[in-house]
Design a protein around this nucleic acid. Structure first.
Length: 562
RNA sequence: UGGGGCGUCGUCAAGCGGUAAGACACAGGAUUUUGAUUCCUGCAUUCGGAGGUUCGAAUCCUCCCGCCCCAGCCA
C-alpha cells in the first residue's frame, strides 16, 4: 500500500493543525481537550468529538486533556463523572494524569473576574432575569444599557465580594461583561458571567455560591491548560466572539483558538442529551445502558466493539455541513469488525423439531466445528449431533417459492458440520395446521458435509441437538425509532411517537452446549442468524444474549421484494 | 427583515483555477459447508440557481435561492 492510500482522509481541522505546525503558531504544540459536562451519559455524538480531539493529539504527537465542564451544580453529579471516564477509557483513549475540572479553576476564574472589574470591563447588574431579557433587545433592535452598567469599580468590587460571601439571594445580582448592548451578536450584549446559586457542588461542596458561566469559563480553562486548538460543535460559532473577547481582555496565559465542526446526527436515532434523559426517566428504555440506547454504555452492552465505533468516527469525516449519517454505515462498521473478531456458534431462535428417522436412537456424535471459517487461529470445538434436533422454523417451507433453497418436502440440504438430510414427511398440529415436526433421513456417507459421489446441495442450515441444547434468552434489538428523523414529526406529535414498539423482542433460544462457557461481554456470531453479546444478566445455566446486529440477509431482501 | 455558518451522487465526503477521489447504500455477476464473508462490475458530462472573469471554474467575482445557529442568571 502506498502512503497515499494510508493517509487519513483530509478534513479542515487536520488542515488547520498542519498549517499551524508549519507556521509554528503554537511553538509546535498540539494540545486539545474533550470537555464534557457531567450531566448525562456519553453518546455517539461525543464519540465523534472524543475521536477527533484525542485523535488529533495522537496524530501530531500532542496531548488531549479530559476536562469536566462542571459549572452548573444543579445538573451535574459524580455518577456522571465516573460513567464518562469509564466510557472514554472503553473507547480506547487515555488522558494520562490530565483529568481536569473547570471547578478546579473557580478561584482563578474569580480572580480574572476581579481583574475585569478593576479594568472597568465587568459590572454587577441587579436587574431581574426578566428585566435583563427585556433590556437585551431583539434580532433587529439593539438592546438598552443596564441602569447598573456604570457602577464604580469600587462598588462593583464590593458587590461582587458580597455576592461571593453569600450576602445576596439567588437572582438578585449577576456579574456581567461590559461589551456592547448594540452588538448584532446577542452573546456580546453584556453577557452574564457569574450567577448566584446556593447549591451544593459535587466537587467544591458549599465553598461557592457564585458560579461562573460557560462563556467565561471555557476559554479561560483552555488558556490555563495551554490548549492550542479548542474544538467544539457548530452551535458555538456565535460564542467564538466572546471566547476571543475574554482572552483578549485578561492577562491570559495562552491564546488558544476555537474551531467548530458539525455534530453527528444519525438516522433513526436521537442524539440529544435532553431526549436521552427523557427516554431514561420516563422508562421508554431500561436505563442509560439499555442496548437500544446510542450511549457508549448502551453500545458496549449491545456488543459493539470500541474499534468499530472508532472506525465509524473515522469514516464519517469532519466538516462544517449539518448532516445526518445513515445508520447503515454504522451497522456496516459493526459487522466488519465482528466478522473478523467473533467466534462462530450455532443457536436456534425460532425452533421447530427435526427428527432424523434413520439415525439410531440414543446415539450421539461429537462433530468438529471450526470457530471461524476465515481464520484457523480461532481453532475448533465439538458439537453434539443426535436423532432429534432443533432447526430454524424459517429454514423450512412446505410449499417453497422458486428461489428458496432450504429444506422442503423431498429436498436435501446440509446440516452445518454434520450430514446431508432429506425431508420425507412433516407433522402438523391438527388444529392449527402449524408444522410441529419435520421428519428426514440422513446420508451417513456425508459426514462432515460432503458427499463422496459429488452431489451438491444448495443450502446449509444450522441446528442444535435437542437433548444437549442450552436454553437461553435472546434479546432481539432493532432501531429505537421507526422514523428516519424522529424529530421531524407532525404537529402535536413528538419523537416519542416515533418509538419503535418492536425495538426489543425477547425470545427463548436453543444454543449449542459450548455457549455455557461464555462470559458476559463475549460476542459471538450465531451462524446465519447474527452477532450476539453475552449480557451481564447472563447465568451459566441460562445465558442472556443481546443481538448486536443481524447478518446481512440478501435472501430476506429478495424474498421481501417478491 | 440583525448577525454567524453551510449548500459536491440516495447518505457521508475529498477537491482550494487545469477539466468530479473514496466510503456506505443500491444494482448485476463470480466464489462459498453461514443466501455471511470475499471478489469483480456498474452507479454525479456534473458540483443549490443565474450571470460574469478566464484559454480553462466545483474552485475567483456578483446577485439570487435554500437550510442551520443565536434573544438561558444552560453548556
Amino acid at each position: 500500500m502506498s502512503t497515499v492510500e494510508n493517509a487519513a482522509p483530509s478534513h479542515f481541522i487536520r488542515n488547520i493543525i498542519k498549517a499551524d505546525l508549519e507556521a509554528d503558531t503554537h511553538k509546535g504544540r498540539v494540545h486539545t481537550r474533550f470537555p464534557p459536562e457531567p450531566n448525562g451519559y456519553l453518546h455517539m455524538g461525543h464519540a465523534k468529538s472524543i475521536c477527533l480531539n484525542f485523535g488529533m493529539a495522537e496524530e501530531f504527537s500532542g496531548k488531549c486533556n479530559l476536562r469536566f465542564d462542571d459549572t452548573n451544580p444543579e445538573k451535574e453529579s459524580t455518577e456522571y463523572v465516573n460513567a464518562i471516564k469509564e466510557d472514554v477509557r472503553w473507547l480506547g483513549f487515555d488522558w494520562g494524569d490530565r483529568e481536569f475540572y473547570a471547578s478546579d479553576y473557580f478561584e482563578k476564574l474569580h480572580d480574572f473576574a476581579v481583574e475585569l472589574i478593576r479594568g472597568g470591563k465587568a459590572y454587577v447588574c441587579s436587574l431581574s432575569a426578566e428585566e435583563t431579557r427585556s433590556y437585551r433587545g431583539t434580532l433587529t433592535e439593539a438592546g438598552k444599557n443596564s441602569p447598573y452598567r456604570d457602577r464604580s469599580v469600587e462598588e462593583n468590587l464590593d458587590l461582587f465580594a458580597r455576592m461571593r460571601a453569600g450576602e445576596f439571594d439567588e437572582g438578585s445580582h449577576v456579574l456581567r461583561l461590559k461589551i456592547d448592548m448594540a452588538s448584532p451578536n446577542f452573546l456580546m450584549r453584556d453577557p452574564t458571567i457569574y450567577r448566584i446559586r446556593k447549591v451544593h457542588h459535587h466537587r467544591t461542596g458549599d465553598a461557592w455560591c457564585i458560579y461562573p458561566m460557560y462563556d467565561f469559563t471555557h476559554c479561560i480553562s483552555d488558556a490555563l491548560e495551554g490548549i492550542t486548538h479548542s474544538i467544539c460543535t457548530l452551535e458555538f460559532e456565535n460564542n467564538r466572539e466572546i471566547y476571543d473577547w475574554v482572552l483578549d481582555n485578561i492577562d491570559a496565559p495562552a491564546r488558544p483558538r476555537q474551531y467548530e465542526f458539525a455534530r453527528l446526527n444519525l438516522s433513526s436515532t436521537v442524539l440529544s442529551k435532553r431526549k436521552l434523559i427523557q427516554l431514561v426517566n420516563e422508562g421508554h428504555v431500561h436505563g442509560w445502558d439499555d442496548p437500544r440506547m446510542p450511549t457508549l454504555s448502551g453500545l458496549r452492552r449491545r456488543g459493539v466493539p470500541a474499534a468499530a465505533l472508532r472506525d465509524f468516527c473515522e469514516r464519517i469525516g469532519v466538516a462544517k455541513k449539518d448532516s445526518t449519517v445513515d445508520l447503515a454505515l454504522f451497522e456496516y462498521c459493526v459487522r466488519d469488525h465482528l466478522n473478523a473478531s467473533a467466534p462462530r456458534r450455532m443457536g436456534v431462535l425460532d425452533p421447530v423439531k427435526l427428527v432424523i428417522t434413520n439415525y439410531p436412537e440414543g446415539e450421539v456424535e461429537w462433530l468438529d466445528a471450526v470457530n471461524h471459517p476465515g481464520d484457523p487461529a480461532f481453532g475448533s470445538r465439538k458439537v453434539p449431533f443426535s436423532r432429534e434436533l432443533w432447526i430454524e422454523r424459517e429454514d423450512f417451507m412446505e410449499d417453497p417459492p422458486k428461489k428458496f433453497f432450504r429444506l422442503s418436502p423431498g429436498r436435501e440440504v446440509r446440516l452445518r458440520f454434520a450430514y446431508f438430510v432429506t425431508c420425507e414427511e412433516i407433522v402438523k398440529d391438527p388444529d392449527t395446521g402449524e408444522v410441529v415436526e419435520i421428519r428426514a433421513v440422513y446420508d451417513p456417507e456425508t459426514l462432515g458435509g460432503n458427499a463422496p459421489d459429488g452431489r451438491k446441495v444448495k443450502a446449509t442450515i444450522h441446528w442444535v441437538s435437542q437433548s444437549h441444547a442450552l436454553e437461553a434468552e435472546a434479546r432481539l434489538y432493532d432501531r429505537l425509532f421507526t422514523q428516519e428523523d424522529p424529530d421531524d414529526m407532525p404537529e402535536g406529535k413528538s419523537f416519542l411517537d416515533a418509538l419503535n414498539p418492536d425495538s426489543l423482542v425477547q425470545k427463548k433460544a436453543f444454543l449449542e452446549p459450548a455457549m455455557a462457557e461464555s462470559l458476559p461481554g463475549d460476542v459471538f456470531q450465531l451462524e446465519r442468524v447474527g452477532y450476539f453479546a453475552v449480557d451481564p444478566d447472563s447465568q451459566r445455566e441460562r445465558p442472556v444474549l443481546n443481538r448486536t446486529v443481524t447478518l446481512r440477509d440478501s435472501w430476506a431482501k429478495a424474498a421481501g421484494k417478491s
